[in-house]
């Protein structure tokens, strides 16, 4: 029970980070990035390729993160231009379908070129007991990285001009322009950040188990569920929802079984939309 709970929190923090990347892009650009998981795995594959080419782990990880970030920057600079010219419902639909297409392309290329390539970051050492539960070093390191990045994000969004700028554009784009913020540049920045965060989640997942092309869709779906339950556009909501869903995930697979777990998570998203579209943690209108 306690071990399931702790597993849940560990998993949940990663879910949260996964959701943050998706929720930010929706908040800033009105685009549901259905290629989020694909970008994440692409980053992980780049890391594993770099490591196979004898690049040490840390620089290899940085290369992978950079690759995912650059990819998203390119998407913003090219495909998304047409989306930004649209407004309202048709913009959202266009963004969604184009990112779905991008997801297919990444999935297809990965399955074609790297069908069995996986990133597994085995971290040695004996399991360390935490609250009486032995935790593997890989899972502890993954948690530590996730927590640190989470804190960095909190500080960034609360205390830096750019971080506040990002939040201001999400809340009121015109208001942001009127204080001298260029929404397009903030959007570009967030696309890069989102790619980086996605790849980072894939890398931390690789510390506890291998990540390969088969994970793409489940990453995207998880990110979507987390972002929806947390309230699309809400960063703190995504983190809270991530932890909540992580705990729900572990507890229900502990007590009920895995296939029901996925259904429960999906139902959480569906029920949130129907009952409280602004998200469990967002303010309702």
């Amino acid at each position: 029970m306690i071990s399931a709970l702790m597993d849940g929190v560990v998993l949940g923090l990663q879910y949260g980070l996964l959701g943050v990347g998706l929720t930010l892009i929706y908040g800033l650009a009105g685009v549901i990035n259905l290629a989020h998981g694909q970008v994440a795995v692409m980053g992980a594959i780049v890391v594993s390729l770099a490591m196979e080419a004898d690049v040490p782990a840390v620089p290899a990880i940085l290369i992978g993160l950079a690759a995912a970030a650059v990819f998203m920057l390119l998407v913003d600079a090219t495909l998304m231009r047409a989306v930004y010219r649209q407004e309202g419902e048709s913009r959202i639909l266009l963004g969604l379908l184009i990112m779905l297409g991008v997801g297919f392309v990444i999935d297809g290329v990965l399955e074609w070129r790297y069908p069995i390539q996986q990133l597994g970051l085995r971290i040695g050492g004996e399991p360390i007991p935490i609250l009486g539960v032995p935790m593997s070093t890989g899972s502890l390191l993954a948690t530590a990285v996730t927590v640190v990045i989470g804190l960095v994000l909190v500080v960034f969004f609360r205390s830096t001009a750019l971080g506040r700028g990002v939040r201001s554009v999400i809340q009121d784009e015109q208001g942001a322009m009127l204080v001298g913020i260029d929404p397009a540049r903030v959007r570009t920045f967030v696309f890069g950040l989102s790619g980086l965060l996605a790849a980072l989640v894939a890398v931390t997942r690789a510390m506890t188990g291998p990540v390969g092309v088969s994970s793409t869709i489940s990453f995207t779906i998880l990110a979507l569920i987390v972002a929806v339950v947390g309230g699309l556009g809400s960063v703190s909501g995504a983190f809270a929802a991530g932890v909540l869903l992580g705990v729900v995930d572990r507890l229900s697979s502990f007590y009920i079984g895995t296939y029901v777990t996925t259904i429960i998570l999906l139902l959480c998203a569906a029920i949130t939309i129907v009952a409280r579209p602004a998200g469990l943690f967002g303010r309702s209108h």
Binding site: L79, L97, I98, F104, V105, D107, G108, E111, W112, P115
Partner: peptide
């Protein structure tokens, strides 16, 4: 596998 790439390109 190229099918998926192709679908993606068609959609986009």
């Amino acid at each position: 596998q190229l099918r998926l790439v192709f679908y993606g390109v068609i959609l986009i």
